[in-house]
Amino acid sequence: MDYTRQTRFSDPRAHAPLFDALPDDPGGIGEVIRNIVVHYRASGIPFPPDRLTEIDSRWADRLLDADRRRFDTPLAEPRPPEQRIVGCCRDFTLLTVSALRHKGIPARSRIGFADYLDPHWHYDHVVAEYWDGARWVATDTQIDVADVRLAPGGLRPASQVWSSYRRGEIDVNQFGVDPGLDDVRGDWFVRNYVITELAHRHGDELLLWDLWGGMSRELTGDLTLIDEIADLLQSADAGDTTAERKLAEHYATDPRLHPGTHVTCASPVAPESQADLRREPTT
């Protein structure tokens, strides 16, 4: 996959000129993205319901629509936190990846669980990863952490967490959205995130609460398939081109892995609904 090319989710469309004035380096881009996005929970700001729906803006151009409704200034011009785009780690990452690709820098999003946000909990998290000419470098735009290790102590990709769980090495119930939320953690949650990790790797940068194919809210289905995909993801990360090719074949042909025309959006701020992925983003 050519990670310099925009996907249907990362494409800023009519808003692409806004990225022209951004810095050319990942750190500078991250600083601008933090100026325009605010986390819907971690900020502590009591956003009204109509603003919270911005977290379900699946496409980059719709996220930028939200900024344009309130501002007509360059993205680097300061925005008060309460007026920024309401999003989550996935949205900080999607806009970072979008801007990096706009600058011709190969970039993608990585799905996993962060060991560096809380010493007692492994929060689900998304970071951007870019190619610096020699290696892939992960960067956490949301909280400004550069060169995040994709390993214990940093961000553990969902594939790593799944394999560790299957080997009996971890308490998988310590991996999830929040220690106070019992219904979004554990084995089924990590299984779903392996599929999400695969989707993001192949340019379907869906919402963290989108469900499709082999996903469910309990641990059912063919776990050997998830074992295989997790192993291939880790091998591909290590540079195995054969594993990368097998992942692409699995993703293209297995309906348990790739989304079709619709996904179930189990939004944390709105009633569950069916989302049509064929709908073109507004411009």
Rank of each mutant, 00 (worst) to 15 (best):
A14L: 05
L63N: 07
A107G: 10
G27P: 14
T93V: 00
I105Y: 06
V127G: 07
H120K: 10
P106I: 11
W131Y: 15
S98T: 03
L63G: 03
Y40M: 04
D91T: 00
R101L: 06
G133D: 08
L52H: 03
P119E: 06
I29P: 07
F92R: 02
H120T: 12
P26L: 14
C88S: 10
R70Y: 06
L22K: 10
R34A: 01
G112E: 12
V86M: 07
Y123T: 02
P78C: 03
L64D: 04
I36V: 15
E82S: 12
G133L: 06
H120S: 08
I105L: 12
R90S: 01
A42P: 09
V38S: 02
E31W: 07
P80L: 13
D140T: 09
D56C: 01
L22F: 09
A128L: 13
I36M: 01
S98F: 00
V137Y: 08
F113H: 02
L63H: 07
E129N: 08
D124Q: 11
R101S: 04
L95A: 03
P106E: 09
Q83W: 14
A14K: 08
R70L: 14
T96R: 03
A42S: 15
W59Q: 04
G44R: 07
D65V: 09
L95D: 00
G104N: 06
D61T: 14
D65W: 14
P48V: 12
G112Q: 12
L22V: 11
W121S: 01
R62G: 00
H120P: 00
R69A: 08
I45E: 13
H122I: 02
V126S: 05
G44V: 06
R79Q: 13
W121C: 01
P81L: 14
A16G: 00
P80V: 08
A138Y: 11
H39L: 04
A66E: 15
V37L: 02
V126D: 04
H125F: 07
K103Y: 02
K103M: 05
V97E: 02
G30D: 10
I29Y: 07
A42M: 15
R101C: 04
A138C: 12
T53W: 01
L18I: 01
I29H: 05
P23T: 01
I36H: 00
V97Q: 02
L64C: 08
